[in-house]
Amino acid sequence: MIVLGLTGSIGMGKSTTARMFAEEGVPVHDSDATVHRLYEGEAIPLIEAHFPGAIANGKVDRARLAKAVVGNQEALDRLERLIHPLVREDADRFVEKHREKGTPLVVLDIPLLFETAGTDRVDKIVVVTAPPQVQRERVLARPGMTEEKFQKILARQVSDAEKRSQADFIIDTSKGMEAARQAVRGIVGLLT
């Protein structure tokens, strides 16, 4: 089985590309979706212990949690130390389940693949990319996003150029949906 790591900086089209892999029949483990699920279950006691007041209606309230960590690097680092191992364990279970089933290819959608030293967990890496202006337009179109928030996020991520230099495959999402879909199909065909 080949474990394909899918990553890309904010606003590059990673989530859309992950859906394209799923549409091609490739099982995809979505780290962001896993975090959402953890915030409604397993992670609640951990978050409550470290970030009192971040729980509302029986689950982690992302807005309250954000108030506790945004602009506070120590708090953000602490949150990541709590959550990243849980996400990794979930992904490991996903991979093992598909290995046992004999699945030929799976995708781990990991936004911070390089930032969390996750390259050792995958056999091949796909980086989604787009020109900086396209990325900026996409990100600033998101509700509640500001230029300042965007710059802070970028500062915490490995640069797009560095990611592309370590990729086995690159998908430029600025060329349109059909071009991205064709690139996904090409990768799936090559690896299966």
Rank of each mutant, 00 (worst) to 15 (best):
T16I: 10
G53C: 07
G41L: 07
A43G: 04
A56Y: 07
V26W: 07
D61Q: 01
K14S: 03
E40T: 11
R37S: 14
E42F: 09
K59L: 05
H50L: 07
I47V: 15
G58V: 03
V60S: 01
E24P: 04
D32G: 08
E23V: 06
G41P: 02
L65D: 00
A18R: 12
L65R: 00
G58D: 03
H50E: 15
F21K: 12
A49L: 07
F51A: 05
E42Y: 11
G25L: 11
H50D: 12
A54M: 06
G53I: 05
H50T: 08
A66L: 01
E48N: 10
S15V: 02
L65M: 01
A33T: 10
A33H: 11
H50I: 06
G53R: 06
Y39M: 13
E42C: 05
R64P: 01
Y39C: 03
I47D: 01
T16P: 04
E23C: 04
K14M: 05
I47R: 00
R19Y: 06
I44C: 13
G25K: 10
I44F: 05
R19W: 09
G41D: 13
M20V: 08
T34V: 11
Y39L: 02
H50R: 14
P52T: 08
K14G: 02
I55T: 08
K67N: 12
F51V: 03
F21N: 12
R62P: 00
M20T: 09
A54L: 05
P52Y: 08
E48F: 02
A63C: 00
S31Y: 15
S15N: 04
E40Y: 01
A63K: 14
E23T: 07
A63N: 10
E42Q: 13
A43W: 00
L65Q: 00
T17F: 10
E23H: 09
E42N: 07
R62E: 00
A22T: 12
F51E: 04
E23Q: 14
H36Y: 09
E23F: 02
T16L: 14
K14T: 04
G41E: 13
A43K: 01
T16Q: 12
V35S: 07
R19M: 14
K67Q: 14
I55G: 08
F21A: 10
E24N: 09
N57V: 04
K14E: 04
L38P: 02
P52K: 07
F21T: 12
K59M: 12
V28I: 12
A63E: 13
G58A: 01
G41V: 03
R64G: 03
R19S: 15
E24G: 06
D32N: 08
E48V: 02
H36K: 15
L65Y: 00
I47E: 00
P52S: 09
G58R: 01
G58P: 02
H29D: 14
E23Y: 06
H50P: 05
L38M: 05
P27R: 09
H29Q: 13
D30A: 13
I44S: 04
H29S: 14
P27H: 10
A54W: 03
A33F: 08
A22C: 08
P45C: 11
A68F: 00
P45T: 10
F51Q: 06
R64I: 01
A33Q: 15
L46D: 13
L38V: 02
G25Q: 12
P27K: 11
P52R: 09
F51G: 05
Y39P: 05
D61G: 00
A43T: 03
L65S: 01
N57W: 02
T17A: 13
H29P: 05
P45E: 09
D32R: 08
D61L: 01
G25Y: 11
E48D: 15
